[in-house]
């Protein structure tokens, strides 16, 4: 395994298609297999593999259903929500992408769920009912990116102070020249 050099890089930030390298271990292979079988229940979903993580892309309407399915089904058993991340692809693809990283402590496998949201109205159902650890992660996503979560009450900002205007996590928020003082 040698280090790969990234050759054709443009100085501007273009989002290219990711180079697919799959290094799944045994547990990952098993998970990929059983996911492929069950994923047909959820229309509009795609499975892919990104380095060593099985990824499922799904739209926001089905999110709550698939989360419950993944948590309570025996062979998946994803009882631990590790992280909720928001990536801002607003400029090129006009979406925000929410990524949920799930880990199963019992069965020792992990996966990720990606949900693309339209950037003019990013709304997604909350998974607070499924995993309680989603609470503060969702609040942080709301503070920093402006994602609206259905099904949970609007709470005061977690990381920012009350009355803060703008969403500092987004790429559109200026990095250097915002006049605060």
């Amino acid at each position: 395994m040698l280090m790969k050099e990234s050759s054709s890089i443009s100085s501007k930030r273009e989002i290219k298609a990711p180079i697919v390298r799959e290094y799944l271990d045994q547990a990952g292979e098993n998970l990929h297999k059983i996911l492929k079988e069950s994923i047909s229940d959820f229309p509009g979903s795609e499975i892919s593999v990104s380095i060593d993580m099985v990824t499922v892309k799904i739209d926001s309407v089905q999110l709550a259903k698939i989360c419950e399915f993944l948590k309570y089904t025996e062979k998946f058993g994803f009882d631990y929500l590790s992280c909720i991340t928001v990536v801002d692809y607003e400029k090129d693809q006009e979406i925000f992408e929410i990524i949920y990283h799930l880990i199963s402590i019992r069965l020792h496998h992990k996966m990720a769920i990606k949900v693309p949201l339209p950037s003019n109205d990013p709304t997604v159902p909350s998974v607070l009912g499924v995993w309680k650890s989603a609470d503060w992660f969702e609040r942080e996503a709301h503070d920093l990116f402006g994602i609206k979560f259905e099904g949970r009450e609007n709470l005061p900002p977690l990381l920012l102070y009350e009355g803060f205007e703008g969403y500092p996590g987004r790429k559109s928020y200026p990095f250097h020249d915002y006049g605060e003082w």
Binding site: E5, P18, M53, S82, C83, I99, H101, A112
Partner: peptide, 23 residues
Amino acid sequence: RPPVGEVFVRTESPRGDLGVFLV
């Protein structure tokens, strides 16, 4: 200049499960 892609890594810090997600 890493190749295009994303990665999620978990480590055990003294406080717990420290994860880094890199795009």
